[in-house]
C-alpha cells in the first residue's frame, strides 16, 4: 500500500532498482569486511609495515572505496537527472496544497474546481505536482509512484509523478507536523483516458 519496493510508476520503479543494486553491492562489501575481520584471528606470517600500509590503507582504504563510490555517484546522478520534472509534451499540471491536516488539490486543466484528500491524475502520463503549504512544512509522498517532496512556506516545489496503470494509490504527508501527523494521509486515483476526460468535465463521483 505504501511500499517503495512495490513500484507502480516509472520514478518509483527506477528508485526501487537503484535500491536493489545498492543492497547487492552493500552486502558484498559487508561480507568482504567481515571475512577480513575473521581472518585477523588466524595465525599469520610476519610482514613489513610499509607493505601493510600499501595494502590496507592505500589499496583497501583509498582506491577501493573511491572506485566503488565514483561508480555509485555517477549512477545516482544519472537517475537523479532522469527524474527531474523537465518540460515536455503531454504533461499534466496539478497543485497540491498542504494544511494541518489535509491536502487540497487543484488542476490546471480544470481551474474551476479543487478536490480535498484525493488527487486525480491520468494513468500513463507524466504529472507535475506543484507542492505548496498554507501553514507548516509538509511533504507530499506517494511511495508507489515517486519519492517525496517538501511543501515549504513561501515556495512552490515541483514533483514529477506518474502511474503506469489506473488504480488508487495511498499517499502520506512525510514531514512531522504535530499531533495530527499520524492520520495525515491522502489518495491518488489514476484514471484511464476516458475517465480522466470525464473527471475534467466535472463528472466524477
Amino acid at each position: 500500500m505504501l511500499s517503495t519496493v512495490d513500484p507502480a510508476g516509472p520514478a518509483a520503479q527506477t528508485i526501487a532498482t537503484l535500491w536493489w543494486v545498492m543492497l547487492a553491492g552493500a552486502s558484498l562489501i559487508f561480507a568482504l569486511v567481515m571475512v577480513l575481520l575473521v581472518l585477523a584471528f588466524r595465525r599469520k606470517n610476519a610482514g613489513d609495515d610499509a607493505g601493510r600500509v600499501r595494502a590496507w590503507i592505500v589499496g583497501l582504504g583509498l582506491v577501493f572505496p573511491m572506485t566503488v563510490l565514483a561508480a555509485l555517484l555517477a549512477y545516482g546522478l544519472i537517475v537523479g537527472e532522469r527524474l527531474l520534472p523537465r518540460e515536455g509534451p503531454d504533461i499534466v499540471k496539478v497543485g497540491a496544497e498542504g494544511r494541518l491536516s489535509a491536502w487540497t488539490f487543484t488542476y490546471e486543466d480544470a481551474p474551476s474546481f479543487s478536490t480535498d484528500g484525493t488527487l486525480h491524475i491520468p494513468a500513463g502520463r507524466p504529472v507535475d505536482v506543484a507542492v505548496t503549504t498554507a501553514d507548516v512544512i509538509h511533504s507530499f509522498w506517494v511511495p508507489r509512484l515517486a519519492g517525496k517532496l517538501d511543501a515549504i512556506p513561501g515556495r512552490t516545489n515541483i514533483l514529477r509523478i506518474e502511474a503506469d496503470e489506473a488504480g488508487t494509490y495511498t499517499g502520506v504527508s512525510a514531514e512531522f507536523s504535530g499531533t495530527g501527523y499520524d492520520s495525515f494521509t491522502f489518495y491518488v486515483i489514476a484514471h484511464d483516458a476516458a475517465n480522466w476526460d470525464a473527471f475534467l468535465n466535472g463528472d466524477f463521483e
Partner: peptide, 10 residues
C-alpha cells in the same frame, strides 16, 4: 564535479 555533469537550476 556536478558543475560540469548535471543540469543547473532544475
Amino acid at each position: 564535479s556536478p558543475v560540469v555533469l548535471t543540469t543547473y537550476c532544475v
